[in-house]
Amino acid sequence: MSKDGSADFFTTKLENVVNWARKNSLYPLPFGTSCCGIELMATLASGYDMARFGAEVVRFSPRQSDLLVVAGIVNLKMAPILRNIYDQMADPKWVISMGACASSGGIFNVYSVTQGIDTVVPVDVYVPGCPPAPEGLLNGLLRLEDMIARGETHAHRRMKSPDGKTPPTPLPAVSSMDAHPRGSEQRKV
């Protein structure tokens, strides 16, 4: 801060301070649906202890949490509910997509499964694995904290954009897996 009280330097610093505070006080909402939910439980429990990284207090209410950990499959019946929960969370909010099913559909490229939850909610960090080991999720959490500190998440982009919406990321509409006509999977060997 300069002596005449000019605000330029100060605001930048404030943003950093706020981001520092945000990254160290994440309130995760465990959206555990299947196998990854069990590993998420292991990450939260003793042994791995996610509390060490500032994500201690697990909230089951979307109103009280700012980190949505989508652990496990989100199928087409569940997708609107996930979106509902995401919309109920207060900004700034972040999303970790844990596991292959949530990130891309994984091995389940079938009629009932969302091919990645990024078709439903904007995702900040993808954690690969089926399910990821607790170490993997912790690494994802640390990556998210770095991103928050640098202000590179969807939530930050939303705050900076004039209409308050995240500019759509240039993701391909349909993944390369779907390039061949669907339904021709039937193996005729």
């Binding site: 299947s34 196998c35 069990i38 496990g72 199928n75 569940m78 389940f108 079938v110 009932s112 499964v113």
Partner: peptide, 30 residues
């Protein structure tokens, strides 16, 4: 229920017997 329906029975008809082993893991994942 049906919020985690992953069509394993349909996949069983579309994958070889060897490939289907991985899908059985995700039945009772405990």
């Amino acid at each position: 229920f049906g919020y985690t329906h992953r069509a394993k029975e349909k996949l069983g008809e579309n994958r070889t017997y060897h490939q289907f082993i991985v899908y059985t893991d995700r039945l009772n994942y405990c």
